[in-house]
């Protein structure tokens, strides 16, 4: 076995059996397979159990504010489009606190990958309902069960403009790794909704519960671009939960639209000499 180049001196602090372990493994496998130089990877983390990954992942890391990973990720990508930028977020972080950023990032289609750790609860604050929690689910903040209908992250992403969407399951690491790899390769805004049990605060959605419901789908390249069909698949969540690549199409990215970025990272561009600018004529 190859040495794990991503390990740091810090050991994971997630609960034993947490779905985050599978996601972490899948991400490392995908990055290893892609062979991107470690220094060219930037992972921006939200705040939640998922975000704690920063301390045991040896790449350039940014641990931002709760909900704000995506604007930071976009700023990094717009300053240096050569970097591989990945946002690691949770269902609460990405769709609760950061919902506005999520839909606007999808709309702009920056070439970044968003990995949504989706376990229906806020784990780090000890088990309140998240925006993906199913109706009726009893949590610390919903003692008589969730009453507001949930989001499905990928359908929301596709609707808002994401050009790649997939759903995976942390209990199937090779398959999830393949989805993450495809998302990173995709040129555009890619969302991977990652189903994971919270073994501490959610006794309903166990590994077994997911295994009974997930169904791998294999959609042809042409059909993947059909937004309506993709949204329908992505919204399907209940007795059957389709997993796999759900949407994929090619559009100009946010960075493509910045002509100046064709010359490379902003840090390499010279400072303009202000007193010779043509635009000064408007002040005369």
């Amino acid at each position: 076995m190859k040495e794990d180049q991503f390990l740091t001196a810090t050991k994971p602090t997630w609960c034993p059996g947490c779905g985050n372990f599978g996601i972490w493994m899948a991400l490392k496998n995908a990055l290893t397979k892609l062979a991107i130089p470690r220094e060219n990877i930037v992972i921006v983390y939200g705040v939640g159990c998922h975000g704690n990954m920063r301390d045991w992942m040896n790449v350039y890391g940014v641990e931002g504010l709760h909900g704000r990973a995506l604007p930071v990720a976009q700023g990094i990508k717009l300053a240096n489009p050569n970097l591989t930028v990945i946002a690691i977020t949770g269902d609460g972080d990405c769709l609760g606190e950061g919902g506005n950023h999520f839909i606007h990032a999808a709309k702009r289609n920056p070439n970044i990958t968003v990995l949504v750790h989706n376990n229906e609860v806020y784990g780090l604050t000890t088990g309140q309902a998240s925006p993906t929690a199913q109706i009726g689910m009893v949590t610390k903040s919903t003692p008589t069960g969730v009453v507001d209908p949930p989001f499905t992250p990928s359908s929301l992403g596709i609707f808002a403009g994401a050009t790649f969407a997939a759903r995976g399951f942390t209990g199937d690491i090779p398959f999830l790794a393949e989805l993450i790899r495809a998302a990173i390769i995709h040129k555009g805004f890619s969302v991977v909704d990652m189903l994971q049990p919270c073994v501490t605060f959610d006794k309903i959605h166990t590994y077994q519960w997911y295994r009974e419901r997930i169904q791998k789908v294999n959609i042809s390249e042409e059909s993947l671009g059909d937004k309506k069909q993709s949204i329908e698949l992505a919204s399907t969540f209940g007795e059957k939960i389709p997993i796999g690549v759900l949407h994929k199409r090619v559009e100009n990215t946010s960075e493509d639209r910045e002509i100046v970025l064709k010359n490379g990272p902003l840090s390499l561009l010279p400072t303009v000499s202000v007193d010779t600018l043509e635009l000064l004529s408007q002040f005369q």
Partner: peptide, 28 residues
């Protein structure tokens, strides 16, 4: 383009400053 900069209109001021911080971390 003439100035060699990126100007982005964010969805709100929270996004704006977080983008600026991201760009700064990447050397701009």
């Amino acid at each position: 383009t003439e100035l060699g900069i990126v100007y982005k209109q964010p969805e709100d001021e929270i996004a704006g400053i977080n983008m600026a911080i991201g760009a700064s971390l990447a050397g701009a």
